[in-house]
Amino acid sequence: MYLPNGLVRRCFIPGEAERTSPGFKTVKGSEKFRDNSDSAPPGVYPLPLTPTMKPLSSHLENITLITGLDRPYKSGGDAHEQGASCYLSSVSPEEASEKKLRFLQGRTLDHVIGEKLGR
């Protein structure tokens, strides 16, 4: 299930309640935001019920939240466009360069799995 346009981090991600949004920045500008990241140290934590997770309260024992995942980005294309179309892509940055692709967009995870599981 894919959610568009990002989300409000401070209300969803554990430990980020005090973090404010830096305001609009280009993708390049957002790199500075990364440098100031105050994420928790890598590790396994109990899953708290953050404000945005409240609707999931009866499912918490059935959910894992993974944070700190990076998506490869290729400069030159729109961030929203790449967000959706490259989200599940099997194409690596190296492969995109070799094939001179505009985006890191190609066969997606659902089709790779579907080949094996059928349909």
């Binding site: 981090r9 920045k25 957002s30 935001f33 790449q82």
Partner: peptide
Amino acid sequence: VACGVGLGDGAIHQYFDLPLMLAGK
């Protein structure tokens, strides 16, 4: 059942430090 976002903080078009939820056994 995965549920995720292609952008983290939408305001800055954040493509890193993304959250992803997985459910189902």
